Simulated assay, not measured.
Amino acid sequence: VMVPHRNPVALIDATREEYALGPADVWTFFHSSAFDFSVWEIWGALLTGGRVVVVPHDTSRELDRFRDLLRVERVTVLSQTPSAFAQLLDVDHTDLAVRLVVFGGEPLDARMLLPWFDTHPESGCRVVNMFGITETTVHVTAQTLTRGLALAGTRSVGTALPGWHVYVTDPDGRLLPPGVAGEIRVGGAGVALGYLGQEELTSRRFTPDPYTGGRLYLSGDRGRLRPDGSLDHLGRLD
């Protein structure tokens, strides 16, 4: 996937103020550099003056050692897939400096967060679920989670980041009203240039955006918009 340099810059610009990202933050570089989540971890820190702690592979697989790293390095921004975070909940996770947890990479069952909220109140640590795609530069939407939303088992992945656009359409590309499920299509600042050396696939998945004059990415994901503009992610269409 060809992602120009301006796209990660736009991603950090879209999130810097909302999440108060800055020089006081310490981020983990937990994921493989082959996983697009790592773009967020590395450049989120470096473009805001923060510090990046590289998590050794062995440490990432040993929960006690990873928890100890979070404590010793005083990590403030932790990015995790839900399945990795679920394992962290199995060890003592008190006395951490984490103020922002960002989920991505796979669907989140919000109910799993209840043990976290027991020891990390919403006032001290913000928990955010982000939906995104490599072809649209890591993150597209964001939903801040609360104990109430976790109890309700929300499926919302939130609203589009500033500069990103989310549409839900039928197979012919016509916009669907809130509450009706269809294909998620993404436009705006994060849309990639296409697939390297795969012009036919690029032409099928990246199309003109008739609403903004830019380009759209056809995700192949199923979703529905809520009346407030937030998005429910409902899995894959295929």
Rank of each mutant, 00 (worst) to 15 (best):
176 L>Y: 10
182 G>C: 01
182 G>D: 03
225 L>E: 05
139 H>E: 04
71 R>G: 13
71 R>P: 13
65 R>C: 13
31 H>G: 00
123 S>A: 15
76 T>M: 07
66 F>G: 09
177 P>Q: 10
23 P>I: 11
185 R>D: 05
92 D>M: 14
7 N>Y: 00
11 L>F: 03
12 I>M: 09
179 G>L: 03
192 A>M: 10
144 T>G: 04
207 T>C: 07
144 T>F: 00
45 A>C: 01
150 A>M: 04
157 V>E: 06
198 Q>K: 14
89 L>C: 12
215 R>D: 09
103 F>D: 05
76 T>E: 11
131 F>M: 10
173 G>R: 06
156 S>C: 02
201 L>D: 12
93 H>I: 15
190 G>W: 01
166 V>R: 00
50 G>T: 06
224 R>G: 03
182 G>M: 04
137 T>V: 10
179 G>H: 01
193 L>M: 14
155 R>G: 05
122 E>I: 08
49 G>P: 08
118 D>P: 08
85 F>S: 02
161 L>Y: 02
94 T>L: 12
117 F>E: 14
26 V>P: 05
196 L>M: 11
193 L>R: 10
202 T>A: 13
218 L>I: 12
5 H>C: 13
22 G>Q: 08
23 P>C: 13
26 V>M: 03
192 A>N: 10
150 A>Q: 07
215 R>E: 12
110 A>Y: 06
223 G>M: 05
196 L>P: 07
126 R>S: 13
17 E>A: 15
56 P>H: 02
130 M>V: 09
177 P>F: 04
214 G>Q: 03
176 L>S: 12
57 H>D: 13
34 A>S: 15
194 G>S: 03
147 R>L: 07
150 A>I: 09
9 V>E: 01
89 L>W: 06
24 A>L: 14
128 V>R: 10
90 D>N: 14
1 V>Q: 05
60 S>H: 08
221 D>H: 04
37 F>T: 15
42 I>H: 01
220 G>H: 03
173 G>D: 02
62 E>L: 13
160 A>L: 07
74 R>P: 04
168 V>Q: 04
58 D>A: 15
143 Q>Y: 05
34 A>Q: 11
140 V>W: 04
78 L>T: 00
210 P>N: 03
14 A>I: 00
165 H>L: 12
160 A>N: 09
137 T>A: 01
117 F>L: 11
104 G>W: 02
55 V>R: 01
140 V>P: 02
70 L>K: 08
223 G>K: 03
196 L>H: 13
36 D>S: 08
15 T>Y: 02
186 V>P: 00
107 P>F: 06
103 F>T: 04
24 A>G: 15
88 L>P: 02
40 W>L: 11
77 V>S: 06
72 V>C: 04
192 A>S: 15
194 G>R: 01
142 A>T: 04
204 R>Y: 10
170 D>E: 11
66 F>L: 15
12 I>K: 00
